[in-house]
Design a protein around this nucleic acid. Structure first.
Lengths: 155, 155
DNA sequence: GGTCTTGTTGCATAAGCATGCAAGGATAGT
DNA sequence: ACTATCCTTGCATGCTTATGCAACAAGACC
């Protein structure tokens, strides 16, 4: 039961994983195009089925191979989450993160590294971080992200 | 610019994250239903936008909150990947994994822990693992998984 | 060489998701 | 209070993805 067709299939699926690692694939049709360039004559139907079999995930509008984690920062967040005590808005553009004593710097470093689009800048003291956002919309998104990242109970 | 409406929004997004952690959500409409049960009157449009803002990921046919990792085994695989030298089929149901000397046991332990559906059983020597699958289809899926998990170049 | 079984494929289309747009709520400034 | 501005929302709809189905390929068995 394994022959040319099946090799074709296995090869194609490997090619898909390679492509997903190397390129930004937003639609299955994109993948159809890339596969054609590599000599695979295939339609969106099969790509869709391949995706399911391979366990490909879709995040942030793009497809990623299984195991690839989008936010390499995620682990870091987990590591510092236990130091985070509260997330509070202060006015429309400043968000205050309270941490356990002495941990602010560490937590802030993780936040900086995350490089979130809504963050304009941060400064940190001993147990407090101020995060500046451009406006209230950004602040709102930020707060949601912080709560999610640190698994904080909503107010 | 922040009032009832916006609280509604923030609450709803928190509710979404909670629901995604607690239930299996396959379609955005499912979420609309669950949110209705909790008093949120919202349409699929907004849920779609919420998903994007929250960075929700879709994997294996269901939605997951950002940060939730589907394969908790991933770290383990990464740790032993460097010991894996080759993955080779042997007939239609046995797959042989070659590892560096002495590492077979360690790698096999990770594979066993992963508990993949296509694996019927494994035995390991010093630098070789035999993996039994039910049939060739399972073997094929297994090989793809192994190559993906261990980042092995396809033949 | 038939015939049966198993698996893959494309097509057509259903199902599901994203989004332009206009409406409406809320605030800030005048 | 009026106006301008900023957000959020639903609707309608276009875009993207999943799938029932029939066709076909390959091996197993007679």
């Amino acid at each position: 039961m394994l022959m040319q067709q099946d090799l074709h299939l296995a090869d194609r699926r490997n090619a898909i994983l390679r492509l997903l690692r190397g390129s930004v694939v937003r639609r299955q049709e994109d993948l159809v195009g890339l596969l054609h360039q590599q000599g695979f004559d295939v339609t969106q139907s099969s790509v869709s089925r391949d995706m399911r079999e391979l366990g490909v995930i879709k995040a942030q509008g793009r497809y990623l191979p299984p195991g690839a984690e989008l936010s390499p920062v995620q682990g870091d967040f987990g590591a510092v989450a236990r130091f985070v005590r509260a997330v509070l808005p202060s006015g429309p553009s400043i968000t205050v993160v309270k941490t356990s004593a002495g941990a602010a710097g560490t937590v802030a470093a993780v936040l900086d590294k995350a490089d979130w689009p809504e963050v304009v800048g941060t400064i940190s003291g001993d147990d407090t971080i101020f995060i500046a956002t451009q406006d209230q919309a950004a602040q709102q998104r930020l707060i949601i992200r912080l709560q999610s990242s640190f698994r904080i109970q909503a107010a």
